[in-house]
């Protein structure tokens, strides 16, 4: 139990710090790298929550594919003048205020609702096979819809980005 708590402490710290750095850094590429850190530590967190398959997918899809996309995006849209422009808008205090209000509301609600509820120490561990069964039975239609969505996104992205 203690080991898990220590693991959580490390993961949470890395996640939170990377996330904050990501939204404050002045360099786009750095931000992308911080995002990698956030996503990777979240993958570890998912393992802690006994969701190994989700964690694997997180690594494969997010860090493998999505991040590459982001890096391409960053490079293709680098402003001609370099990094001179500030990456943060002048109205950032408003954004901070809104985020703070939201954080306050969420924290309050969560503390109010769950207090110091404990997660069980011996949860039902779902194997990947169970996840597969669920997807291809209960959520079959959602799965098909998701595949159509991915196809549409693929075509849409090509159509949008194509030079003509």
């Amino acid at each position: 139990m203690i080991a898990q708590n220590i693991a959580f402490g490390i993961i949470a710290t890395v996640t939170a710090v990377s996330a904050v750095l990501m939204v404050t850094t002045r360099n786009v590429v750095h931000a992308a790298l911080y995002l990698v850190a956030v996503l990777a530590s979240l993958g570890a967190l998912y393992v802690l929550l006994t969701a190994e398959f989700v964690a694997t997918t997180q690594f494969l899809v997010y860090i493998g594919a999505v991040m590459v996309l982001f890096l391409f995006g960053v490079m293709l849209t680098r402003a001609p003048g370099g990094e001179t422009q500030s990456l943060t808008a002048t109205s950032w205090p408003v954004a901070f205020g809104v985020a703070a209000i939201l954080a306050g509301a969420l924290t309050w609600a969560l503390l109010d609702q769950f207090g110091s509820d404990e997660l069980s120490e011996n949860p039902v561990v779902f194997r990947t096979a169970d996840v597969g069964d669920e997807i291809f039975s209960t959520y079959l239609i959602a799965f098909e819809a998701a595949s159509v969505l991915l196809l549409a996104a693929l075509i849409g992205a090509i159509v949008l980005a194509r030079k003509d």
């Binding site: 809104v98 209000i101 939201l102 509301a105 609600a109």
Partner: peptide, 18 residues
């Protein structure tokens, strides 16, 4: 600007709701 209004209003409404 729209996003700020959206999230701000949602948060305020959520607080009122709570």
């Amino acid at each position: 600007g729209y996003g700020a209004l959206l999230f701000g209003a949602t948060a305020v409404l959520a607080i009122i709701f709570m």
